[in-house]
Amino acid sequence: MNSKTAIKIMLWLLVFVMLFHLSIIVKLIPYEITWGGRLKSDIEMYVFETISILINLLLFSILLIKGRYVKEYLSMKVVDIILWIFIILFGLNTIGNILAETIFEKFFTLLTLAFAMLLWIILNKDKNRAHN
């Protein structure tokens, strides 16, 4: 798989993830089954879900830059550093999801692992292309 394909897959997955978070905000999905059952009020849910959406929007915009779909307003070096940070976050999140108590959250192990692997492809295919 090339870097461009991995970016496109990531962008589409992020759209679905953001729709999932919006579904929690509008209470189509009960927040009690997310976040390890730690959320105790609507206010906590709104804060956590808003932060999640903002982080996903950040990753979305960074991937748009990496794929050269938008003007490069950050250097590619900064973009790559941010993507490496996201690989680490998704790796830790994958471990957390494996250890989750509910099947619902364990399912997200697949998604976070896929995100980490796709980001790895994006960063390494790009590096390999630069060296050739």
Rank of each mutant, 00 (worst) to 15 (best):
I95A: 07
V26W: 12
R129A: 12
L11E: 12
F115L: 13
G67C: 05
R38I: 13
N2S: 02
L113A: 11
K77V: 06
K4S: 11
L22W: 07
V70R: 12
L92S: 09
F16P: 02
I103V: 13
E49G: 09
Y73V: 15
W12L: 15
G91A: 07
H131C: 12
Y46L: 11
L19N: 05
L19A: 13
D126T: 14
F86M: 09
S41E: 01
L119K: 04
F86W: 09
S41H: 04
R38A: 14
W84S: 11
K66M: 06
I24S: 01
L11G: 05
L99K: 09
M1F: 05
F48S: 09
T50R: 01
L28W: 11
L74F: 10
S75G: 06
M10R: 00
V79W: 00
E32Y: 03
A6V: 00
G91N: 09
F60T: 03
T5S: 12
F48G: 04
G36S: 01
L11S: 08
M76Y: 14
I24M: 05
L83S: 03
L54S: 10
S23V: 01
M76Q: 14
K106A: 06
I85P: 02
I62Q: 13
L13R: 09
I43T: 15
L59H: 04
I122K: 03
R38P: 01
L63H: 02
I62Y: 08
N128R: 15
E72M: 02
I121Y: 05
V17F: 14
G91T: 12
F86A: 09
I55Q: 07
E72T: 01
T112R: 04
D80G: 10
K66A: 15
E101V: 11
R38W: 13
L118G: 01
L22G: 13
S52M: 06
T102S: 12
N2C: 02
G96P: 04
N124Q: 12
A116S: 07
A6Q: 03
N56K: 06
L57R: 00
F20I: 04
R129S: 12
L59Y: 00
G67I: 10
M10N: 00
N132M: 14
F107C: 11
L110Y: 06
I121N: 06
L22Q: 10
D42K: 06
V17R: 13
R68P: 06
F107M: 14
L74M: 13
L110P: 04
E105G: 06
L57W: 07
I24L: 02
E44Y: 00
L28K: 08
L63V: 01
L19G: 07
I62S: 11
A116D: 00
R68A: 15
L14S: 03
I88L: 12
